[in-house]
Each structure stands twice: as C-alpha cells, then as structure tokens.
C-alpha cells in the first residue's frame, strides 16, 4: 500500500536529512505505529505519503502510484484515497459536526444524496450519533477528534494517516480513540499512526517502526514503544 525505496528528504541545502535512506513497505490493511522523538522524521514521512513534500532522493509509492512521476493535477485524486488526522483536529469552528464531515465530500463534488446517507453513517461509526448539530467548541477533545476521524474516513479511503491523534487527549479518551482507529483498521483500511504515546503502543501490540534522526532504527511486528529505553 505504501512503499518507500531508499527515500531521503533534505529540507534545506546542507542541513541534516529529515529522512535518511528509508526503505519501508506497509501492506494493505496493516496497522503501523511510527515512533520516535520530535524531529525524528515521523511527520516528514506522513507528508511524503500525502505528497505535501517530494523526496530529495528515492521513490515513494502509494496505492500503486509512483509519486515521483505523479503530475500535480492528479495529486487531489491521490489524496481522496488517503484520510488524515492531526493532533490539533483541524475542524472548522463555524460549521456543525455534520457540516464539518460533509465538507470533505462537498469539496470533492459528491452528490447531495450521497452526502445525506454517508455522513450520518460515519458519525454513527465514530460514536457521535445524535451530535450532528453541535459545533466543535461544544464538544470535548475526544469528541472533536472523532469528528476529525469521521471527516478523514467519510470517503472510505484505503489509507488513514494519523499524526499524534492522541497528543492533546487524556489517557482514557485516548484509549477510546485507539479503539476507533482499530475498528477502522479492521474494515481493511491501512492505518499509519505517528505517536509519542508509549502506553498506547505497548497496549496495541501492532507493528512498530522507530525513527531516530531520520534513520529507521527498528521495524518490529507486534512491538512495544521503547525497547531502547
């Protein structure tokens, strides 16, 4: 589903590479934790998958496409197959929960009847049934993240990227979010989650890829957060 071939990313000329010769393959339907300290290259990895950045060297394949040869105008189509969730939720404050989720479908030109059926289903799936008319500021952090997940998942992407989705949440709420991501993963969606949260990683027992200063130092199936600690 995602394949990195000897990928290096250098942001500024002469600077230390953010990613250094990474080789990695993520299979369809896998759940992968991307762990490592701040600045280890986790976010760069996710940005390369979304093609918000292009690698300095090496090649990135996502959903069967070679991103180095993907023309700019096809990038939106790539992103329609990828859902993304962030630490800061990135919801629109002046739109309701329903509108926030529907927005993702509206802007890619989905017909109204499709939106009217898909959005409530997805909100039900993430456990927000009955809260369609609330606005983000009326919700708890965990609920806001569920809205963000609903928005990322409403178009049924084949890949879900999560950049520290539990970073702003307390442990109990985080567990709920992880259950949700796990459920989404069980529908066949590939999930790549960058995180600092060692408890969660240790609990979930999924594949763990550890980055350190842009280098891959560990790739362990059913791993834990910190074998090196």
């Amino acid at each position: 589903m995602i394949r990195f071939e000897n990928v290096t990313k250098v942001y500024a000329r002469g600077a230390r590479p953010a990613l250094d010769a990474i080789d990695l393959e993520v299979e369809r339907g896998e759940f992968v934790f991307l762990v490592g300290a701040s600045g280890s290259g986790k976010s760069t990895f996710l940005r390369l998958v979304l093609r918000e950045e292009r690698p300095t060297a090496g090649r990135v394949f996502v959903a069967g496409r070679d991103l180095s040869t993907l023309s700019t105008w096809k990038v939106p189509h790539l992103r329609r197959q990828i859902g993304a969730v962030f630490q800061d939720f990135r919801l629109l404050p002046n739109k309701t929960v329903f509108e926030n989720v529907a927005f993702a479908l509206q802007v890619i030109g989905k017909p109204k009847h499709h939106i009217m059926t898909t959005v409530p289903d997805t909100l039900e799936l993430v456990g927000l049934g009955g809260k369609e008319r609330r606005r983000p500021h009326e919700l708890s952090g965990g609920e806001q993240q569920r809205v963000a997940i609903a928005r990322a998942f409403v178009n049924r992407p084949s890949i879900l990227l999560a950049d520290e989705p539990t970073g702003n949440l307390d442990p109990t709420t985080s567990v709920g979010i992880m259950r949700l991501l796990d459920r989404i993963n069980r529908t066949g969606t590939t999930v790549v989650m960058a995180t600092h949260d060692d408890e969660i990683v240790d609990q979930m027992r999924k594949r763990v890829v550890e980055l350190d200063h842009g280098q891959m130092v560990r790739d362990q199936s059913r791993g834990v957060y910190g074998s090196t600690r």
């Binding site: 939106p76 992103r79 197959q81 993304a84 890619i108």
Partner: peptide
C-alpha cells in the same frame, strides 16, 4: 482541509 481531502 480542502487540499487535504483532495479537492481539485
């Protein structure tokens, strides 16, 4: 968000 979800 539009860019993220793949609006043209």
């Amino acid at each position: 968000i539009m860019r993220l979800v793949g609006a043209s």
